[in-house]
Write a protein that binds this DNA or RNA. Structure first.
Length: 466
RNA sequence: GGAGAGGUGGCCGAGUGGUCGAAGGCGCACGCCUGGAAAGCGUGUAGGCGGGAAACCGUCUCCAGGGUUCGAAUCCCUGUCUCUCCGCCA
């Protein structure tokens, strides 16, 4: 991207930019351009040349694209950019003349005067271009990804489409307890203790329950690395705002994140998707490096702002939880296949644990900001008598890749964005909930699923204590 | 945390404020040569953006941001990262 020295008088507008904005974005400058390195999600050319289509597709997911504003900003940007570059070209050639004249021992004073005037005009043009570029950047950064054509159109989760359901919903000869009661009975889960330590939406676990939680994560990691070809990665749980911008959590969803104090724009990760996917930021990957398949087990931190009153009981919705995350980086054109594969990998975990679940295709209105297509996996929870989300698998196509400049080469050798996918495989805490509730006995004991027993020292049953 | 040294193209590595997007080397690609290969020789080999049907042209990028200047890879300031030494620490 062009890096033009930002004229001093434009600093005020730039410095008013939110400190939460990624450094890369603030840096943009200047912008002689806003695409690719700017906060762009959609292909700039596609947006410009096929605006009607883009607007229509965004409307399907309930996003109102301000066509008039875009057209106005874009046309102004274009004329200013041409004007600025023309002036720069002039200045460059004139300045070179000075160099030559000086070398030839000629008088360069008249030349310097002429170029000086040019420079002032150039500064003015740059300043106006920067302002427009800033506006355009902010405008474009808030536009979500385009939904795939086969994504069901809808407004809310009520419009999601069930693809299939696997496993029989268990029927108990007694009244099923929920995981909170079970956890208490096993003396392994204490919400009050966590509330004392920190506050609401935290939990402490102990004994066999804590071990079961660990066993689940180990099992998932082993399954994905041994059977599904993923490479285990260990990543920071604190990331720079730039990374959050790359995957699309910023600038729009800062209120969902925990931000650290201090000068650095650092945040606790809301999902391993952020650090893992950003591993390929600013890289041009060789074709034979792809696909990249990575799995990471990390804690996740979410402020759950705006979730007051929702799922207040139990560990369904916590500020901190653990997750085993799958990420794939693939060449364009392979991501549709990869989404099916990755979702299948997540389902394998549920199959192995013998938990009943179903797969939903999220509708346009329920998908996340960065997703082009998303499958949610929902597990059956006897304690609630309903399915609950336990995994979300998304294809973001080139949306994240463009924001983070992650590329590979086309057959012609030209750089082109990769496609990125991510999905939970699975959310460990919620899987624990599902295991406890689905494997409960009438007396409050919980049977350990067979595949987990090697991770539990052979324990078959966790016995109720109280 | 303290002190010092440094961040240049895929890699290594030059670069007196002007003709430097940047010598040279390595790697890579293509070609010549060869029965084939190696060696040798030749040519090419960053990215973004804008304009253009294209050829191509323009512009920007030598860690980042700011400054000085007609002109900055080169000078100044700040930040950041890496390395070495000291301190601290799991």
């Amino acid at each position: 991207m062009p890096r033009v020295a930002r004229p001093a008088h434009s600093r005020s507008s730039r410095s008013s930019t939110s400190p939460d904005m990624p450094r890369r974005w603030r840096r943009v400058p200047a912008g002689l351009s806003f695409a690719t390195d700017g906060p762009l999600m959609l292909d700039a050319r596609v947006l410009r040349q096929e605006t009607d289509d883009v607007v229509a597709r965004l409307a399907r997911r309930g996003f109102a694209f301000d066509r008039e504003r875009f057209d106005a900003l874009e046309s102004e940007r274009k004329s200013l950019q041409v004007q600025t570059e023309t002036l720069q070209a002039e200045r460059n050639t004139e300045s070179k003349k000075i160099g030559k004249a000086k070398a030839a021992g000629e008088d360069i004073q008249p030349l310097i005067a002429a170029v000086g005037e040019l420079g002032e005009r150039l500064d003015g043009a740059k300043a106006r271009l920067n302002e427009i570029a800033d506006e355009l950047d902010a405008f474009l950064a808030g536009i979500p990804n385009l939904p795939d054509d086969d994504v069901p159109v809808g407004e809310s989760e009520d419009d999601n489409v069930e693809m299939h359901a696997v496993g029989d919903i268990p029927s108990f000869a007694f009244e099923a307890r929920d995981h909170v009661d079970l956890g208490a009975g096993l003396a392994g889960m204490d919400f009050e203790a966590a509330a004392k330590l920190t506050g609401a939406r935290f939990v402490t676990m102990s004994g066999p329950v804590a071990r079961l939680h660990r066993a689940l994560a180990q099992f998932m990691l082993d399954l994905h690395t041994r059977e599904h070809g993923y490479t285990e990665v260990q990543v920071p749980f604190i990331v720079h705002a730039d990374s959050l911008f790359g995957t699309g959590q910023l600038p729009k969803f800062a209120e969902d994140l925990f931000k650290l104090e201090g000068d650095a724009p650092w945040y606790l990760i809301p999902t391993a998707e952020v650090p893992v996917t950003n591993l390929v930021r600013d890289r041009i990957l060789e074709r034979d490096e792809l696909p990249l398949k990575m799995v990471a087990h990390t804690p996740c931190f979410r402020s759950e702002a705006g979730s007051a009153g929702r799922d207040t009981r139990g560990l369904i919705r916590q500020h901190q939880f653990e997750k085993v995350e799958l990420v794939q980086i693939v060449p364009a054109g392979e991501s549709e296949r990869a989404l099916e594969e990755l979702t299948g990998h997540a389902e394998t975990v549920l199959d192995a644990l013998g938990l009943p679940y179903r797969r939903l295709a999220l509708c346009t209105g329920d998908m996340g900001f960065s997703a082009a297509k998303t499958y949610d996996l929902e597990v059956w929870l006897p304690g609630q008598g309903r399915y609950r989300e336990i995994s979300s698998c998304s294809n973001t196509r080139d949306f994240q890749a463009r924001r983070m400049q992650a590329r590979t080469r086309s057959a012609e050798g030209k750089p082109e964005p990769v496609h990125t996918l991510n999905g939970s495989g699975l959310a460990v805490g919620r899987t624990l909930v599902a295991v406890l509730e689905n494997y409960q006995c009438e007396n409050g004991d919980v049977i350990v699923p067979e595949v987990l027993r090697p991770y539990m020292g052979g324990i078959v049953r966790i016995e109720a204590q109280v």
